[in-house]
């Protein structure tokens, strides 16, 4: 059963790869390909198409509702966040006030969390991408004993989403004394099975053996062959692994919740959740509605910007990203 599932994944990756290289989603609007005339070809009726378009826009509105709410909320005073009507703006305009309070509240702990989050995600992202590239390159281009067995293991791990391993990981950390240690959150990002697999597919698909051999004949060392020849050719794959590892670490909540008890080590997600529970339980000396809302906005902006900026890379990688969960 499991084998079949893995073959399914492989088949999907093969097809995804084809779309990367061939036609597919990267077709720019207004490109040469003509759009089908849906009315003539499919015999679609106009009311049906109108309904479909209406539903698509309506669903877009549904997705945007919370984002619209948080954008307005970040411009409101504490009192207005909860007392004014959520879908209308309210005066006074408090965005800048909120932002400056956000970074000064409680000796600037939010800034501290922001730096922590940046540090954790960048370390995990950069390290994870390098390791994944090494592994992918080795699987694709070297023949060594146990290669198939290790590949199988990597594939099996790809199928297990990170959350399923969080508690076992925590239990392991308690004995290794890695709780309250930044390594605890960086290490899992370094061993990204999905990344290794994605890089394997990319190296196999886009780095021909002949190019590597030519470089070797010219006297390049193996490490030079890897860094200077292979890696640039697999850049889209590497960027996708980097993006998903950074975002995965940035957005993680469960693992840091388990391993960090010192607030000075918190990432943003954990810090904001803490503010929220102390505000809503009413025990906190400060009621922080406006700061939670503004902090939430600041926390989600970087990952949204990253996804928008790197669109053309992750769109290709997403078929494979499906296995990250």
């Amino acid at each position: 059963m499991v084998e079949k599932h893995e073959w399914g994944a492989v088949a999907m990756i093969e097809s995804g790869e084809r779309s990367v290289l061939g036609h597919g989603i990267s077709a720019k609007p207004g490109s040469a390909r003509r759009r089908p005339d849906i009315y003539r070809i499919y015999g679609a009726r106009r009311p049906v198409i109108w309904l479909v378009n209406f539903l698509a826009v309506l669903f877009g509105v549904y997705i945007l509702i919370p984002l619209y709410w948080i954008l307005l909320g970040s411009m409101k005073t504490n009192n207005n966040v909860v007392n004014s009507f959520g879908f209308f703006p309210a005066l006074p305009f408090f965005l800048f006030e909120n932002l400056s309070r956000l970074f000064t509240y409680d000796n600037g702990e939010f800034g501290r969390w922001l730096l922590n989050t940046l540090f954790y995600s960048l370390s995990a992202g950069v390290g994870g991408t390098i390791f994944a590239s090494f592994a992918g390159f080795a699987f694709a281009k070297y023949r060594f004993t146990g290669r198939r067995a290790i590949m199988g293991l990597v594939l099996a791990v790809v199928a297990v989403p990170a959350t399923a391993l969080t508690i076992p990981l925590y239990l392991l950390y308690t004995d290794l004394r890695l709780t309250n240690n930044p390594l605890g959150i960086i290490l899992p990002g370094l061993g990204t099975a999905f990344g290794a697999f994605l890089m394997f597919v990319y190296v196999r698909g886009s780095v021909p053996d002949s190019v590597l051999d030519a470089a070797r004949v010219d006297g390049a060392s193996e490490s030079r062959v890897f860094w200077r020849v292979a890696l640039p050719m697999t850049l889209p794959g590497a960027v996708t692994v980097l993006l998903f590892t950074i975002v995965g670490t940035w957005n993680n909540y469960f693992l840091p919740l388990l391993i960090f008890t010192k607030t000075s080590l918190f990432p943003l997600t954990l810090g904001l959740a803490g503010w929220n529970s102390s505000t809503s339980s009413g025990y906190g000396t400060h009621i922080l509605y406006a700061l939670i809302v503004t902090g939430g906005l600041v926390t989600m902006l970087p990952t949204i910007v990253l996804f928008l900026a790197l669109q053309k890379y992750w769109r290709q990688g997403l078929t494979l990203g499906s296995t990250v969960g």
Binding site: G60, V81, V247, N251, Y253, M300, L306
Partner: peptide
């Protein structure tokens, strides 16, 4: 737009909906 929520931390998503 449909894809956007995936980029947002689950904590923030849950907080926004919690307030809504």
């Amino acid at each position: 737009i449909y894809f956007l929520p995936y980029a947002i931390p689950g904590v923030i998503s849950a907080l926004m909906w919690g307030y809504l």
